[in-house]
Design a protein around this nucleic acid. Structure first.
Length: 505
RNA sequence: GAAGCGAUAGCUCAGCUGGUAGAGCAGCACACUUUUAAUGUGCGGGCCCUGGGUUCGAAUCCCAGUCGCUUCACCA
């Protein structure tokens, strides 16, 4: 035992002793040989009723999660990836000869909850009606040296749930073992992503990969993580968005590209923010933001239906219906609907005054766009539960979006708000290289004034635009936020396997 | 970054105005060949988050810190 091994608990000592006893009996607690699994728990439970003969010879593997020993026979619960199944283990079945050690010692004493075992036998129905496996052969597949939390459940009521968030997130493997609904949440997330990917592939768009390590960060307003490449002796940033790279690919001639991108933002953490998160960005040539609204509606309706059947997702107390069509408001309309105030003609001073009346806090650095955004964020956004489009944003807030075709001072941009939070952001992409350069320069000015989230000027991106980018619609969808909605989880940590945590100790 | 709340057995938690550390499950031992939160009897198990302070005496009171959660702030 290594000398830095900390104080083992009583139960850990017992398990190590059991391991030794097993080895003394000549059994390898970590065998190399493959164990052939013929069925999963759920298949047997679901299928036995209709066709019992099909389960006369089955082999399953999983963790032993409960043991109910009654002398010469016992029940154990085996948990595999699909669920749980009860196994009936009788002494004279698994140890038919004179030597009963496999049952009396190995099974009854040296196996512990959490150990991986393989069983062979036949399915049957117990006297109380539960479909179970009658075990003829039992094999230890891997010994567990730490005790699991023991979570019990009866009639839907859970006892002693493993619920401490810190432990659940730091030791997600334990969480996944003992909390089946957690496993289910991540399966749903995966199905959500698959559904989006299938949809986009079905439309003929190309899934691509672009750099995570970027010499300049761009495509969003955020503070980046900074790192250094030794050989190049150069500062690199972890991407805050992949937007500028995907647009370069549109310049290159692809008509539709998308990426499920891990992005990194060096900012505060909350139940809606993790330093690394996933965004799906899609760019399609010859389209505009109006077209993109129809596309995202179609895609997310499909995703919701794939997950729930009817497209209605329960989130907390709300039933959110993703069926098309969704409500569409311009930013000004939305504010008028929720505050009875028409701000469309207001100048900065009037907006500041309005914000004060609405109890929206402002500070002197805020310009017209920022003031509108604040009023919207306070007075409108939290009330938008059903998926809703908000369109036509102030130009100052959107340096990568094309100027509105009809309304000066606005850009062709929409966001999808759902459950009171933004889940998607899209524009008719700015493809005028001269306008784009001016917007970047305006950002540089903001940066000089101390805005540490202002965008930096990307000369190569401008060069690409100067070669000509077709009119293009682009969208970014926050995958984690969407997953929170689709899986009814209140915290982003519950849709990330390994949410960022401060280092232990 | 600020405030509020929390940290006690493997897990979930109790522990009052300071006086030898508790329960259920899990563990160990014995019994039990269709149980299912199995049952019955008995027994072990603690760096009370860390460091200071007050006190004859601190899990408990005070101060500082660590980590977590929540609500803000910034953001997607």
């Amino acid at each position: 035992m290594s000398n830095h091994a900390p104080h083992l608990s009583e139960q850990e000592l017992v398990r190590r002793e059991n391991l030794r006893k097993i080895q003394e009996l000549g059994i390898d607690p970590y065998p190399a040989a493959a164990f052939n699994v013929s069925h999963h728990s759920q298949e047997v439970v679901d299928g036995f009723e209709d066709n019992p003969d099909a389960y006369a010879e089955v082999s399953l593997a999983g963790r032993m999660m409960a043991q109910r020993i009654m002398g010469k026979a016992a029940f154990m619960e085996l948990q595999d990836a699909a669920g749980r199944i009860q196994c009936y283990v009788a002494r004279d079945e698994i140890a038919p000869g004179e030597d009963k050690a496999l049952y009396n010692d190995v099974f009854k004493k040296y196996l512990d909850l959490g150990d991986w075992v393989g069983v062979r036998g036949h399915a049957f129905r117990t006297q109380t009606g539960q479909i179970s496996i009658h075990v003829k052969e039992l094999r230890l597949l891997s010994k567990a040296l730490r005790p699991l939390p023991v979570v019990k459940e009866k009639d839907g009521e859970v006892f002693d749930a493993f619920s401490d968030p810190e432990q659940r997130y730091r030791q997600r493997y334990v969480d996944l073992i003992v909390n089946p609904e957690v496993r289910e949440t991540f399966i749903k997330r995966a199905r959500m992503v698959t559904s989006m990917r299938d949809f986009l592939n079905g439309k003929g768009y190309l899934e691509v990969e672009t750099p995570v390590l970027q010499p300049l960060y761009g495509g969003a307003a955020a503070r980046p993580f900074k790192t250094h490449h030794n050989t190049l002796d150069q500062t690199l940033y972890l991407r805050i968005a992949d937007e500028l790279y995907l647009k370069r690919l549109i310049v290159g001639g692809y008509e539709g590209v998308f990426e499920f991108a891990k992005d990194f933002r060096n900012e505060g953490m909350s139940r809606f923010h993790n330093p690394e998160f996933t965004m799906m960005e899609l760019y399609v040539a010859y389209k505009d933001y109006r077209w993109m609204m129809d596309l995202v509606e179609e895609m997310l309706e499909g995703v919701a239906k794939a997950l729930t059947g009817d497209g209605v997702v329960t989130v907390g107390k709300n039933a959110i219906n993703f069926a098309r069509p969704w409500k569409r408001y311009t930013m000004y309309e939305a504010i008028r609907v929720f505050t009875d105030i028409d701000i469309s003609q207001m100048d900065e001073a009037q907006l500041r005054d309005t914000a004060r009346k609405l109890h929206v806090s402002t500070d002197p650095s805020m310009g017209r766009g920022k003031l509108i955004d604040e009023i919207f964020g306070e007075c409108v956004e939290p009330h938008l539960i059903q998926p809703t489009f908000i369109t036509d944003y102030p130009e100052e807030m959107s340096p990568l979006a094309k100027k509105h075709r009809d309304h000066p001072g606005l850009v062709e941009r929409f966001e999808v708000i759902c459950n009171g939070k933004e889940i998607a952001n899209a524009f008719s992409e700015l493809n005028d290289p001269i306008d784009q350069r001016q917007r970047f320069e305006a950002q540089l000015e903001l940066g000089k004034r101390g805005d540490d989230e202002a965008m930096v000027l990307d000369e190569d991106f401008l060069r690409a635009l100067e070669y000509g980018m077709p009119p293009t619609a682009g969208i970014g969808i926050g995958i984690d936020r969407l997953a929170m909605i689709m899986t009814n989880q209140p915290s982003i940590q519950d849709v990330l396997f390994f949410p960022q945590m401060k280092a232990e100790k």
